[in-house]
Simulated assay, not measured.
Amino acid sequence: MRAVIVYESVYGNTRTVAEAIAEGLRGARPDAVVRCVPVTGAGPEVTGSADLLVVGGPTHVYGMSSGPSRRMARLAAAGNERGTGGPGSDPGPGLRTWFRSLPKPLPGARGAAFDTRADMLISGGAAHGIAGRLTHHHYGLAAAPEGFVVEGFVVESTGGPLRTGERERAAGWGASLA
Rank of each mutant, 00 (worst) to 15 (best):
G43C: 05
R26T: 10
H136N: 09
P87V: 13
L177S: 01
D90Y: 01
T84Y: 09
G165S: 04
G152A: 14
G147R: 09
L106E: 07
R96I: 00
H60T: 03
S9P: 03
L95N: 00
E166N: 12
P145W: 06
A178T: 00
G67T: 13
E19M: 04
T40P: 00
T16H: 03
G140S: 15
R2S: 01
G160R: 02
P58M: 15
G147D: 11
T14I: 03
E81I: 12
P87W: 10
P105W: 10
S65V: 15
G160M: 09
T14Y: 04
C36S: 10
V54C: 02
T135N: 08
L95M: 12
E23Q: 14
E19C: 00
G159T: 10
R133V: 04
M64W: 05
A18F: 00
A143V: 03
C36H: 01
G43Y: 04
G160S: 10
T47K: 07
V155M: 09
P30R: 08
D31S: 10
T158C: 11
F99I: 00
R35P: 01
G172K: 15
M1C: 03
G94S: 03
K104Q: 14
P91S: 11
N13H: 06
L75H: 09
G56K: 10
L121S: 10
P58E: 00
G79V: 03
I130N: 00
G67A: 13
G86Q: 11
